[in-house]
Amino acid sequence: MKYLGKKTITLIMTLFLVSVAAFLAFQIIPGDVVMSILGTEATPEREEQLREELGLGDPPAVRYLNWMTGVLKGDLGVSYRYSKNMNEMMPVAELIGDKLPVTLWLAAVSLALIVLVSIPLGVLWVRSGSRVLDAALGVITQATMAVPSFFLGILVTFVFGIILKFFAPGGYISYQEDFSGFLGYLLFPALSIALPKIAMTARFLRNSMLTEVGTDYVRTAYSKGCTKRRVMYVHVLRNAMMPVVTFLGMIVAEIVAGSIVIEQVFSLPGIGRLLISAISTRDFPVVQILILYITFVVIFVYFLVDILYRVIDPRISGK
């Protein structure tokens, strides 16, 4: 309980500091929002009117407070760029709410692929004892890790989309229309994200397990008559998971925050693409909220990793 309280306080303080920093950053960045929204249609009257509408006339501190109280009440502000219809501006909440499921599902599918493939692969790597397999996996994982993700995306598109025709490149299916079709399409971008991470995680797990297999408790397990397979899965794996869980946490934080490159390559309307376009068009309300979102995700994932540590290793909570 005490632990939970401590973590929550840390989370709130971090979010507060990040929100201030994000807000300040956009005060310093040159360029006038009003001018950039109005473009060539700017007249002094319209400028004045829009400035008033957006509340840009107030001093920064007041604006920060207004913004923050709005955020706390659930009003995330309106986008400078997107509009709902001719007269209404697009609320940021709605904008993000629309894109978030895409990114979250992409992350979920990627993570499932990573965990389901890398863990058996890592165990197999240690268990086999075959030199050929060891060398082969060494080379393959090394190569997969080294390929940049955009290129991997192109490769996946080429192989599965153009040659094998498993999916239509660029033919994104919206999750509101056809959910299973959406998941089917996601499989390929998820594969592009997962492949290098699978290689890294499998390597990580292998190294971690190799340090465990020489330990005394493993010898004890063999002395009871356990098979190698049983020793690996029942005894070694859980002890070897600690560093791997940390690593998986880093990966999750990364992909939940939006895989900018992969979303771009597969033209997925997710958080990553939104972030890019919002930054390039000075859509500050959107950018600020996205920064807070990413911060929250990263901290929350690390918190989950911390909890997992305690589940995996009883010695930690015992202290």
Partner: peptide, 21 residues
């Protein structure tokens, strides 16, 4: 044979048991 007909007690009781079980 191991565990059933022959068994072993090790030196280090600290490390010879699996810490996570």
């Amino acid at each position: 044979y191991q565990g059933a007909r022959m068994s072993m007690v090790f030196q280090e009781p600290m490390t010879s048991l699996n810490p996570t079980q």
